[in-house]
Design a protein around this nucleic acid. Structure first.
Lengths: 221, 221
DNA sequence: CTATTATTCAAGTTATCGCTTGAATGATGT
DNA sequence: ACATCATTCAAGCGATAACTTGAATAATAG
């Protein structure tokens, strides 16, 4: 009763695509791109129930996009390799290039203002070296603590309005967040520009920065 | 009642992945990689009913992986751009690298024989230039007629046994088919090697060869 | 061994998907 | 206008997916 090898093969490829076909799992992958995490932490960050989160993670594991290991009572998940990130990135590129709906959503995030082109990671590294840039990490503070670009200042979207007075009006500001799937940096740049500041988004987020082999600062206990 | 922009965005990315999550649609994309096609031709090649095929194509179109145009009574579909092909390719690479099941299926296709590494397209082009290779196109003859590598000989898997005597035993044979999703070349190489011939698979298929900008010969009426 | 904590499993519900069937639409030629 | 051909739409069915709830399993601490 076995089906043809051809269909069996396509079924396996489709399995990988199916794993990427639910927003909840994309959220999980985005979190895992920041670094390995346990089930509970992932459930917290994504707002999923623990059981539901566990089930999504198992689907990702079946598709070999993530792997898991046991650490005491906890099970730690992480991305299998950089290819998983590459797949997510290509998915996003195709969607952004070709889907009008995505264009509309992204424009909406900028609050009507024209969003400038993002700053490449190489350019930011150069500007950082010469000290001519202010870098904002707009992720939650626990993620900032777990690793951030050296010299970056942490401020969530909620805190952004409060720290506005402390930002020089002539400074070039670069904001980043979790990565291309994350909208925090988009929103932060929109807020800053609305206040007349010279802000731009970093291309990609911390995972891509780390993937480039650039330095990441980790806060210690 | 609108959901958060974040979820809306992920929903769009997921839509693209979902379009790739059915074997039937992967089959259609593989066909479209050969060149643009009408609905009926695609239904024939894939074994889907016309209505079903049309619905799958519309899902691919919603995900912006394919586009369509009208030509008289017919509607012609084609891949939106090379990114669609890149996405399929990455999907396959992740599956082949990480899924044990895929490894098993591919090994099964080789009939237990160890399959040699595929020949790169650059190497084949060089060998063709010096005339030191026999190229076999193992796709159906209509696809061969619609475009093939210059100098390639057409033989379906069914015809392969018959033409065996006409193949020199000391020749280097390279077989290719529709592309990485297609198993014909795997099977052809297995058959040829079982008969003691020095056969290898081309890396990728005709779409990848064409994408490289290499010459493609089209049979005219 | 028992209690505790982290995760997974199992059952049930609702929604969606893939496929089929038959009718509707759109373009073309008589 | 009418007939024809290619494609799409609409309704219906069975299978699968997402989420919830509550129970079961694994590892550790007392």
């Amino acid at each position: 009763m076995s089906i043809s090898p051809k269909l069996a093969l396509l079924e396996e490829y489709a399995l990988v695509a199916r794993a990427l076909s639910a927003p909840a799992r994309l959220m999980l992958l985005e979190q895992l791109a920041q670094g390995e995490r346990g089930v509970e932490a992932l459930a917290d960050k994504t707002g999923l129930t623990i059981a539901n989160c566990s089930q999504h993670l198992q689907q990702l594991r079946r598709a070999a996009l993530v792997t898991s290991r046991r650490d005491g009572k906890a099970v730690i998940y992480r991305l299998t390799d950089a290819k998983t990130l590459a797949l997510m990135d290509l998915l996003r590129i195709v969607a952004e290039r070709n889907l009008a709906q995505v264009e509309r959503i992204l424009r909406g995030l900028s609050g009507g203002y024209d969003a400038p082109e993002p700053v490449s990671r190489a350019v930011l590294a150069a500007r950082l070296a010469e000290g001519s840039v202010t870098v904002l990490d707009v992720r939650p503070s626990d993620e900032y603590a777990a690793g951030h670009i050296p010299g970056a200042r942490n401020a969530t979207l909620a805190q952004l309005e409060q720290i506005l007075p402390t930002l020089a009006h002539d400074a070039q500001i670069v904001a980043y967040c979790r990565g291309p799937y994350c909208v925090y940096a988009h929103q932060a740049v929109a807020t800053l520009r609305r206040h007349g500041l010279n802000a731009r988004r970093l291309e990609g987020g911390l995972p891509e920065w780390r993937e480039d082999g650039r330095p990441v600062l980790i806060d210690v206990g």
